[in-house]
Amino acid sequence: MALPHRGYLGQNAPVSRVNRATAAQSLSVSLTVGAYGIAFGAASVAAGFTVLQSCLLSLLTFTGASQFAVVGVLGAGGSALSGIATATLLGVRNTLYGLRMAPVLNVRGIKTIFAAQLTIDESTGVALSQEHLGVREARQGFWLTGIGVYIFWNLFTLAGALGAQAMGNPAAWGLDAAVPAAFLGLLWPRLTNKSERLLAVAACALALAMTPYFVPGVPIIATALLAVIFGLRARIWR
């Protein structure tokens, strides 16, 4: 007989069992965001990257904002170095997500490499949104969403690179609103107390106020400072 599993919260559910709600949310996010890969594939080829290079960006870089940035910079005639710099700036937030996810995932060795590669806005967002159900659900949310987005993002990148003209502007399909709506949907249930809601509003305001004056990426990363300030003052709110 196999060793008895210790289910979450003392329930005798096997560890391998996947929470349905978590799986459904992961799939929704994977499809919504993955579909945006079409826009990336198209933008990348339009900017002068080959189909192979476009697919490699999605397979290896695998962080949407950075990919759009490097393609945008080179497409506008910028140098490879400025493209890399802009993309790298946009990827800094994945470091912060990794900090948050590492204790939740609790992996070591080769699995750390996979966990790192899958650490993006979406996997972190779903993991956080499932955390109230338990650590197991948070982990499942991270892995299912990370792998799901990876599959769909890469398939749709290829589709977009091969023939995006057929689909045209992603805005015509509402994808430009679907992606922020998806992140909002992930975030919403997480805003459980007054200070978290205030932090969310303050982060929106700061990022928008900074947008006209800073290169893309900086306004988003800068809001981490707000999180530090709120964290340092946490006791006042509780």
Binding site: D121, G125, L191, A203, A227, G231
Partner: peptide, 18 residues
């Protein structure tokens, strides 16, 4: 505490920017 608040700030900012 700070570590748990950082993704809330970043994802909120991302929604606003997008």
């Amino acid at each position: 505490k700070i570590n748990s608040l950082i993704p809330i700030a970043l994802l909120s900012a991302l929604v606003a920017v997008q």
